[in-house]
Design a protein around this nucleic acid. Structure first.
Lengths: 155, 155
DNA sequence: TATTGTTATACTCTATAACTATA
DNA sequence: TATAGTTATAGAGTATAACAATA
């Protein structure tokens, strides 16, 4: 056996794999003038319409960072901002048709770019690998926004 | 079966796993005032002494970007710059003792932070996952710098 | 001539602090 | 009072272009 245990070896692989995937994502994003974060935002918006603060929390960024990020993407016509009907302070972020088209194209390019790597496994190994990764993944941003504050009955 | 094939499912898992790992690395780096790139540079320097251009190529960054990055890390005492004996144009980058100590600490923190995820698999699954990832990984930056230009015999 | 690296410049990403509006 | 978001500001990361030194 190697001088480190199975957890250490696995973590090495996960970290290296992460850098490799991020390299691909960064390159493809840059080819479309998108940062990694903007790429990720578009992916999130594909099937969700979160509030600014949801996005910031999920991405681990400050609200102010998100303001600029969203403003630039909005200027490019990739998304829009709307106000929440339930909370007039809140801003919800929605992807536009143009944003959705671009996201679809990015998705295809990413899959195409990563295929040479995943093709080194046969279909059964790919399935096995996907299944082994699953327990490690934290749940994505919830699709249905939780009630911001539970409705109070009479106190 | 799902509506996409095994390669697409796997890519989803790899991308999500990559974002998750990067989140941990970014957070731990930030706690030590290190960007993801600087974290990565330190990891590379742990057992290599590459030239600026080697680092830039491996990281996928422009040389000019690396100049600033290395300058800031050098000011903090984490690494030093030296000149190559073979090529007086070249600058080689070396980690300092302080840099090595910090890198060791970062490494421990990263393993500690990722353990809750990897612990969701049993040792046999961890080993299997590491083995399945291996074929996907591109080779790291070579440890022994290749002769920059092959020595020419008489033409 | 080509390569290695640095510097000047500009823009994006990021956080902190101060602010407005709503809850 | 507390929360949601924006703006102003400042620093780091990044690329492009122009440059000096060496090959």
């Amino acid at each position: 056996m190697a001088p480190d245990d199975s957890a250490d070896t696995l973590i090495d692989g996960l970290v290296r794999s992460a850098f490799q995937v991020m390299g691909v994502l960064t390159r493809i994003g840059a080819e479309h003038d998108l940062s990694l974060t903007q790429l990720r935002v578009l992916g999130i918006l594909r099937d969700r319409r979160p509030r600014m603060s949801d996005l910031a929390a999920f991405l681990g960024l400050d609200k102010s960072t998100l303001s600029g990020l969203i403003a630039r993407a909005e200027q490019r016509g990739l998304l829009t901002r709307g106000t929440s009907p339930e909370d007039k302070r809140a801003v919800i972020v929605l992807i536009t048709d143009a944003g959705r088209d671009l996201t679809q194209r990015l998705d295809e390019e990413i899959r195409y770019a990563l295929a040479p790597a995943t093709d080194r496994l046969d279909p059964q190994q790919r399935e096995q690998l996907a299944q082994l990764l699953e327990p490690l993944l934290s749940p994505p941003l919830s699709a249905t926004p939780r009630p911001h504050r539970p409705v109070r009955g009479t106190p």
